[in-house]
């Protein structure tokens, strides 16, 4: 039996290697002593670039901007996404399909369309580029992520829980706080982490809404287009990978655990 599927097994592991070797390469190059080329194998290994990257003012500024944007966009997305999910939950009303289509449109259309659309609105309204123009761009697709997660969770939550709560005399806020919120909490945390990671990593839309401001991905992109400070770029790349992987692994563990307990 096992021998029969040898080809299938080999191709499976080959694909997994294909997916992960590039990430490992990024990890390796953060330690190379070489500062101008990508020689493999690296001529030597060093930790000095980590200190130099940390002391780089541009990198720190970009990191701080990215973290603030991601946090703000995530909060907006969770509030609006939950409200939209609650509105379409177990209800029939005119335009319901249109609402659920419109919510996911920002992730169905290529990012560059969203980017140019926002850029057009900024130009048309003569709006100055700011922290908030970046946040608005990120929140449009982050809302879709939050909505998808919360709506999927609500579909598996029985409406009778809310009726029981109301019958027992709880008001709307109490029902939300003590019945609905505990039910959707894993979806909020997982959706929030995904939205945060996506926002932290986003470049396609950000380019069009940032003006001269540099988020961390914009800093990386500009240092790839005009190669300079390669060792710092390598360290930042490793740092960004670590920072995006950790929340994702936590989020998948979280959703899996709760799915196991709640059936």
């Amino acid at each position: 039996m096992k021998r029969r599927h040898l080809g299938l097994r080999l191709s499976t592991w080959a694909v997994l290697l294909f997916l992960h070797i590039p990430i490992a390469i990024v990890g390796l190059y953060a330690f190379t002593t070489e500062s101008s080329a990508f020689t493999f194998p690296p001529p030597g290994l060093t930790l000095e670039w980590f200190g130099i990257a940390w002391d780089n003012g541009d990198v720190r500024g970009a990191l701080s901007l990215s973290l603030r944007v991601a946090a703000t966009a995530t909060v907006i997305a969770l509030i609006l996404g939950t409200m939209a999910a609650a509105a379409v939950w177990r209800r029939r009303f005119f335009g319901r399909e249109a609402v659920s289509l419109f919510v996911v449109l920002p992730i169905a259309l290529p990012g560059i369309v969203t980017g140019i659309a926002l850029r057009s609105a900024i130009s048309l309204g003569r709006i100055p580029f700011s922290f908030w123009t970046i946040v608005i761009g990120h929140a449009t697709f982050a809302v879709a992520i939050a909505y998808n997660n919360v709506a999927a969770r609500m579909r598996r939550t029985s409406h009778s829980l809310l009726e029981a709560s109301a019958d027992l005399g709880a008001n709307g806020w109490q029902t939300f706080r003590h019945v609905l919120l505990p039910q959707i909490r894993p979806a909020l945390i997982a959706g929030g982490m995904l939205a945060f990671a996506l926002s932290f990593d986003e470049i396609i839309v950000t380019t069009f809404t940032a003006g001269n401001q540099q988020t961390l991905p914009i800093w990386i992109f500009s240092s790839l287009v005009r190669p300079r400070q390669r060792p710092i770029t390598n360290v930042v790349a490793l740092f960004v990978v670590a920072l995006t992987i950790i929340p994702i692994v936590l989020a998948t563990r979280l959703t899996r655990n709760t799915e196991g307990t709640s059936g």
């Binding site: 997916l19 990430i23 990671a197 991905p217 990386i220 992109f221 790839l224 998948t252």
Partner: peptide
Amino acid sequence: LIPLWSSYLVRVYSWKLI
């Protein structure tokens, strides 16, 4: 999931190295 969610830009960059 890890490659799906780990930074898109960095994964493109890794191919520049490769």
